[in-house]
Design a protein around this nucleic acid. Structure first.
Lengths: 218, 218
DNA sequence: CATTGATTCAATCAATCGTTTTAAATTGGG
DNA sequence: CCCAATTTAAAACGATTGATTGAATCAATG
């Protein structure tokens, strides 16, 4: 009645559940929660229209489940940037570089590893009932880590008002290249957003931010 | 048959047209194009549901007309920041301060003068068919002006790739406090976004940007 | 083999959207 | 004063949305 012994070790129900989560995460990441109809998701997953409500109890709950699913898929991948997690404590400039590079790299990537970041970035700009969930799981800790780096660079407390606002400003630059791509593409149609561009922008943003923070700390 | 002599000098049709434009601009600015139903606009304007299609030929055309309407209303107001447009040529730092202060001040404002900026900011993050229109009228010239200021600060050409990207980064910080307000409010529920906050953020952003640009130019 | 409970399926529901239609009311020129 | 053009009003249309229904299917169990 319940679990069936399948070749892949997954019951038929678990297979459709996973196919729905994959399809939902990819579509939500690329087109946004509100611009995707449950029919699209079921069509992409090869499932029936009623499957979402049967397995998840509605589109909103599927959204939450897809966020968690995409998060697990991203965490399962090789951490970005690749390589060992550094032997000793990094200088704050390098920490900042890794931080910004991680955001832009994933934001400009495609494929399952990029779904989560793109869903979260969309959530920041076009909030849904899942925003609080995304903040608690990702945005909040992510931002607090950045505030720690900025505080270290300024030699101040992480709770300092200016530290928080400057960290938000750094996040803003990374978010901008994801959220306002339509504006950039309009004036620079040939511009591509690949990993090389992520490298270039990361260098620029980090050099700009470090110089600005040091100039401000004086 | 057409124009009727009204006390206010406006025919009944022109009155309905204006009431529709005001209602549409305010609702589009506060809730976004896609989250506003034509029924809401007509209800707020006290007009019939068919009025929009009669006067403007559809919701999309109303959006374009409301953008122009809001732009004219904003230009009719006292330019912000108030005061004389400065006697001589300002130093680039002051130009940048006026530029950022103008964006944040209008973005944090309420009332008819803020409708246009809020509509344009929404357009950047959630594009509609009116995006090209908004870019040609506002975003493009606005960004080019900022690129000129940044180029002056760096002593480079305005077409320089880094100049353009740094100008985009400055815009990004201002856009962030408008587009991601839900994220900020979630972690800092008591934070208010008024003109005093616009002053504070402008100072911070300008000092940060000037220091960063000068450090980068070396 | 019949039963059982979980799953899938096609069909449909109720709500909302922008838009259109049809007729009545209003308006200003003759 | 009357007529033709214009404007408003109310209803409904067609499309799309997320959600639901009830029967059919499936695999495992007794």
């Amino acid at each position: 009645m319940t679990a069936q012994a399948h070749p892949a070790g997954l019951s038929s129900a678990e297979q459709t559940r996973l196919k729905l989560l994959d399809a939902a995460a990819e579509l939500f990441a690329t087109k946004g929660f509100r611009d995707v109809a449950v029919r699209d998701i079921c069509g992409k997953a090869g499932a029936n229209i009623a499957a979402i409500n049967y397995h998840f109890g509605g589109k909103d709950n599927l959204h939450l489940a897809a966020l968690d699913h995409a998060r697990r898929r991203a965490l399962a991948e090789e951490p970005y940037p690749a390589g060992p997690p550094a032997a000793g404590p990094l200088p704050p400039q390098d920490k900042l570089h890794r931080h910004v590079r991680g955001m832009l790299g994933r934001a400009f990537a495609t494929g399952p590893a990029s779904w989560y970041v793109n869903m979260v970035l969309r959530e920041m700009v076009d909030p849904s009932p899942a925003l609080a969930h995304a903040i608690d799981d990702n945005i909040g800790p992510h931002q607090r880590r950045l505030e720690g780096i900025v505080a270290q660079l300024m030699d101040r407390e992480a709770e300092d008002r200016e530290v928080r606002d400057l960290a938000a400003g750094i996040t803003a630059m990374a978010v901008y290249y994801h959220a306002c791509r339509a504006v950039i593409t309009h004036t620079e149609p040939d511009r591509v957003f690949d990993q090389a561009e992520a490298d270039r922008l990361t260098d620029l943003i980090v050099r700009f931010a470090v110089a600005g923070i040091e100039g401000l700390a004086r």
